[in-house]
Amino acid sequence: MARLTDENVTLAKEIIDRYPRAKSALIPLLHIAQEQDGWVTDEAMRQIAELIGVTPAEVLGTGTFYEMFKFEPVGKYLINVCGTMSCALLGADDLMHAAEEELGIHEGGTTDDGMFTLHRAECQAACTEAPCLQVNYRYRFRTTPVEVRQLISDLRNGRLDDEIPPHGTLARVRQHIPADKGVGAVDPSQVTSPPEWITASAEGGAS
């Protein structure tokens, strides 16, 4: 399956409507595609291009700038071992070696069964909890090589399925703007006057 499902197309349209210009939805839509298939397929990019009114090349052009989008299949679990300063000072290399050994692959590789991809990542914003890693962007803090091996075994046996969704699932809670509450997006060229509360409140507050 590579084209977006009907459900995802509906979601995509809802997201596009939040922006004054449709192209702003490009990155969120790539996330939807990646969530559906685990990676971003050419077909999905073509469809995103249609939805937001740009060329497929523009979708690819933007998408390839961003680390999180994968344009070929990756493991169900993407393990990102942080290698920036604080983690490096406190044993990031040991974590990487343990993961490489346990998985039988090198940094950057994917296991033959398609379960794991292993990357060295840049700073993950958990520096006081070094060394740290993320599995599908879910943290493991102050990790040891022993814990890395255990983590891999737990993932392999499905023991963390509730906590860690397959690669591509960004957030399991989505924003939803109720139709009766939302203000709605307007193309900036259609607006020339100050917002209502600025004009209304010339003499006092808005309430």
């Binding site: 999180m68 509360w197 507050g205 808005a206 309430s207």
Partner: peptide, 23 residues
Amino acid sequence: IGKNILGSSFSIDIVLHWGAGAY
């Protein structure tokens, strides 16, 4: 958030936008 917040003339949407990994 939304139209006429707390009954006032103040109306605003806040749109959550997902980044994708680029320092």
